[in-house]
């Protein structure tokens, strides 16, 4: 019943519809777009270094003559997947750990929060420095896991404290008196009532992951040259943003569009999940 009602409300929600269309268009651009361009992302045009956008190179070229259009779209393919997956993992983990800790209390709470605090105080780059040599050459999924692993702790603390107050609500007690297992109560009654917070967190995590991934690439981990991602492109383009704006503007613009689309979907989802809003 709930999924049906929420889905219906989501489809009727205008923001969610626009956001969804925008996201679909961006995905289409990332995966179909490269076939429309004249160049492949590995091609180097030795006649045009750092040329501004023109009819031949639609979005200009890089300092080594790569076609920006092809390169940016190539980067976006990775970034969309990484951004969405990291957001999903990080927020999901935060919700589960926080809600379980808050709901069960006692030693479960102590243990989980001890883990959270440990991850918070340990400098993340230290861990990455230790882990990265072992994972070199491993699947990029590991990379997603690592990114997500450092993005969930603070949210989970917030979730925990909100759960502490939700736990006392009568409907949570009512569920217990109905004989519903505790883990189900958490998934069914606690997490949905935190959805506003979780959705905001997830949308923030998308952009955080895309940018954060560039930082990780610094450690020689994740997306390695010559392969690219939106993050690495933005990081590189930012250095010359005033001299050669097209190196920065296109990847950054696409990231903004991506985040906007995700935000719209998030807002729509929040409204659809929140019965108080009349959409």
């Amino acid at each position: 019943m709930r999924s049906k009602v929420v889905l219906g409300r989501l489809l009727r929600n205008r923001q969610a519809r626009y956001g969804g269309i925008a996201l679909l268009l961006l995905i289409a651009l990332a995966y179909i777009g490269p076939y429309l361009g004249a160049y492949d992302w590995t091609d180097k045009d030795f006649l045009a270094f750092l040329s501004p956008p023109d009819a031949d190179h639609w979005w200009g070229t890089t300092s080594i003559g790569q076609d920006m259009y092809a390169v940016t779209l190539r980067g976006m393919q990775k970034s969309i997947v990484i951004g969405l997956l990291v957001a999903l993992f990080a927020t999901g983990l935060a919700a589960l750990v926080g809600a379980f800790a808050g709901y069960f209390g006692g030693w479960v709470d102590k243990l989980l929060m001890w883990g959270v605090d440990l991850l918070l105080v340990l400098p993340s780059f230290l861990i990455i420095a230790i882990i990265s040599p072992r994972l070199r050459g491993a699947s990029w999924l590991w990379f997603v896991v690592l990114l997500a692993a450092f993005a969930w702790m603070i949210t989970s603390r917030v979730v925990r404290s909100m759960t502490l107050s939700l736990r006392e609500r009568e409907y949570v007690q009512a569920a217990l008196y109905m004989g519903i297992p505790r883990w189900k109560i958490i998934l069914r009654h606690i997490v949905p009532n935190l959805s506003s917070l979780l959705i905001i967190d997830a949308t923030l995590n998308v952009s955080g992951a895309v940018i954060g991934e560039a930082a990780l690439s610094f450690f020689g981990f994740g997306i390695q040259p010559p392969d690219v991602s939106l993050g690495t492109l933005i990081a590189e383009g930012a250095r010359n943003a005033t001299g050669y704006p097209w190196l920065f503007a296109f990847p950054a613009g696409l990231l903004v569009l991506l985040v906007l689309a995700i935000n719209l979907i998030g807002d729509g989802l929040r409204d659809a999940l929140d019965p108080g809003s009349n959409s």
């Binding site: 009602v5 409907y171 009512a174 069914r188 949905p192 009532n193 959805s195 999940l273 108080g276």
Partner: peptide, 8 residues
């Protein structure tokens, strides 16, 4: 308070 506000 006794009915989950997020549930139909």
């Amino acid at each position: 308070a006794a009915l989950d506000p997020r549930m139909p």
